[in-house]
Amino acid sequence: MFIKTRTNVYRTTYHLVWVTKYRKPIFIDEASRQAMKSILREIAERNDITIFEMEVVADHIHMVVSFPPHNSISSVMKALKGPSAREWFKQFPATKELLWGGALWSGSYFASTVGDVSQAIVLEYVQNQLTDYNSGRPRRDSSPG
């Protein structure tokens, strides 16, 4: 999908993942997951970030997004993580007590470009996080050695 602006047309798609501080399971029910999705949608809209797919798992976030090429990945991550934590703590102040030091997110993140051929696979992967992928954590291999 091409995105058109007054000055350019682009198709840059990224798979972004970030985790809660200490991988604490914060988004443990549907209401909390929906609240975080709503927060992230509002932030994305304010920052010209197009969300193709998003899943909030107990201890991390997956997003498939596009944003104008003049924005860096680090600036987009800063725009998503900082404001989402502030808004989350406004809505759910008791959550701070679960996190040492009061930070919602770990300082790191994962970002990968998504090509035309593999985008469908990444979208399906994100859509099925809660049902097919053990809440986003790798399944343990029970085979010997």
Rank of each mutant, 00 (worst) to 15 (best):
F67Q: 07
L80M: 07
Y109I: 00
S74D: 12
V57N: 05
M77R: 12
E97G: 07
R86Y: 12
P68H: 10
E97K: 15
G82L: 13
L99A: 06
P93I: 05
K78L: 13
A58D: 11
P69S: 01
I51R: 05
G115H: 10
W88R: 07
T113R: 09
A103R: 15
M63P: 06
W105D: 00
G115Y: 10
S106P: 05
S84I: 03
D48Q: 10
V76H: 05
T50R: 09
E87D: 10
Y109T: 02
S75C: 10
I121W: 10
G115D: 14
T95G: 06
A111Y: 13
Q119D: 03
W88M: 02
V64Y: 02
E97W: 11
W105N: 04
G107L: 01
P93G: 00
G107W: 00
D116R: 13
T113G: 11
F110N: 04
K96C: 03
V57P: 02
F92N: 11
K96L: 04
T113V: 04
E97V: 14
I49E: 02
D116M: 09
F67M: 05
V56S: 04
Q119T: 10
H70V: 14
F52T: 13
S75E: 15
P69T: 00
W105R: 01
I73Y: 08
T50L: 11
A111L: 02
T113H: 04
S112T: 01
V64C: 03
S108I: 12
S72P: 00
K78P: 03
D116K: 14
A58G: 07
A111E: 08
Q91R: 15
S66Y: 00
P68V: 03
R86E: 13
A120P: 08
S74E: 14
H70R: 15
E87Y: 06
P69C: 00
G102A: 02
V57I: 15
I73L: 02
K96M: 08
S74I: 11
S84W: 01
G102P: 07
P69M: 01
E53H: 12
A85F: 06
M77L: 12
G82D: 10
F92Y: 13
I49R: 08
G82T: 14
L104A: 03
S74G: 09
I51V: 08
S84V: 01
M77D: 08
I51S: 03
V64L: 12
A85T: 02
S75Y: 05
Q91M: 15
I73M: 03
V114A: 09
V76A: 02
E97Q: 14
G101A: 05
T113N: 06
V114K: 09
V57W: 00
S112Y: 05
F89E: 00
A85I: 01
S118C: 07
Y109G: 00
